[in-house]
Nucleic acid binder design. Sequence first.
RNA 1: AGUCCCGUGGUGUAAUUGGCAACACACCAGAUUCUGACUCUGGCAUUCUAGGUUCGAGUCCUAGCGGGACUGCCA
Length: 562
Amino acid sequence: MPEPTDKPSKPDFIREIIAADLRAGKHPTTVTRFPPEPNGYLHIGHAKAIVLNHGIRAENAGSGARFHLRFDDTNPIKEEAEYVESIKRDVAWLGADWGEHLYFASDYFDFFHDCAVHLIQAGKAYVDEQDAETIRATRGSLTEAGGESPWRDRPVAESLGLFARMRAGEFADGAMVLRAKIDMASPNLNLRDPVLYRILHASHHNTGDKWCIYPMYDYAHPLEDAIERVTHSLCTLEFENHRPLYEWVIDNCPVPARPRQIEFARLSLTYTVMSKRKLLQLVREGCVSGWDDPRMPTISGIRRRGYPAEAVRAFCRRIGVTKFNATTDVALLEHEVRAHLNRVAPRRMAVFDPVRLVVSDLPAGVVEEVAVANNPEDPAAGTRGVPLTREVWIERDDFREDPPPKYHRLGPGRSVRLRGGPVVTCTGFERDAEGRLSEVRCERIPGTVGADPPAGVQCRAAIQWLSAAHAVDAEVRLYDRLFTVEEPDAAPGGFLSVLNPDSLQEVTAKVEPALAAVEPGYRCQFERIGYFCADACDHRPGERPVFNRTIALRDPWGKKGR
RNA sequence: AGUCCCGUGGUGUAAUUGGCAACACACCAGAUUCUGACUCUGGCAUUCUAGGUUCGAGUCCUAGCGGGACUGCCA
């Protein structure tokens, strides 16, 4: 099946800027990067940035464009090696290939240090011995200018000496900081002598105990971009006010290139908690089984949920890139997932709430094999043999004693197709002592396998079925994504895990384990997540079955027929 | 309150130098169907407001209004 190209149909404002820069001869090609801090797992919001940056590389591949994966690990107390591995896994799964260009900000610590010394020597940075509280108090407010530090004009040599001793570990955390000397009266708070370096006696996941001073984001990031010769540094809107500082660092440090920062709106999705802090809280408090819980909006969560990477990429292309602070309907994501799965997913049958159907014209012990298409959308996917015997399981809901109007499935005297097999006509049914449906009986209409029923036979539906003698029990966990509670009634699906976005408590949890029967050969433990079945363990090698019933998804049991 | 950014159907985005406001999702109705899916047909619905420039403004100008970011030794 042809996959749409990664190239968006219309260039967004970022691509237009890049094209203009290229035309103006500012750069021979593009270098973009994805710079996560390894302090948590990536979520669907990060996918937008990854697809954007990697897409630009792909579009300029002809001129030798590069895409870097760089870990922005300048704060050792929040970062862990576990996160580095998960991030690499997730970026790769999304199809963004960084090739040899894997970098760590911590690899540049010497460079950052040398630039700091340069700034001090140039009289553009100084060591400030005020404590954090005092610095905060003298920063001023949104409307008032800040006050200058008493250490602001200390001699260069003194700052140099103090900075060297900071690095040597002579001072306790918080004793002093290195500050840029810019403008305490700037209307942009970021320019009021921002802190460049702080003392942190903490072990770093990459550099161990080599350093006890660590650079701040605003100082390190432009230097990271410059040393990697990044041409276009794409980040989210909240860094807009930081751009003047970004440019100040580039202007005042000995850098080999001049990267350009461009901001775009981060992704937010309806019903979706995207805050890393809150996701971490969910994991820590055990509300979910982990970062990769299928209900989580993390990359690893939606991967386990069965979302194909291609669909996530298509979604990122579809939503575009702008500076407008938008909230995208999660239905757009789900549409892309369904569209992709519908093209490529191998179909399998499963019955969730079985009731016995007796094919009375088929003798006990006889096994007839029928060839069922693996994917009706794709003949190349071939067929598989599914055993048909006298007793099969069908879905309890696929039979009605008193079928409502427009109900197309089984009822007394009605005909329906056993999907992939013959058309059968219902000849009777039985109830148990409690009055619950226990058995349905039917007869096959000869010659209807792979062929239309004879004229006069009304058959408008095909139901799923499984030979009772061959079907395999499977544990099914019924999950859905984690909906936030703002508008739970508007949230689709029947098996909701509803979350209060403020307290992060589940207010109505209907996560129910169930037993299901699946096709022979599929000893599946799978999770039915909303519309999809996926994440089968122990299934046929090389395949990820998506169960027929649930790929049909939007209205799996037909609300109109209820 | 200052600085910066942003306002196009319900949602997300398009719209050549100013020239018939379009696409997708969602929703509604119908057709079709060996998945009540997919597909097909039809429908609903849009330029924040007020002035100005112009033959003509989503686009240019001015003023409002609305939303967002910023007062970490986080990123």
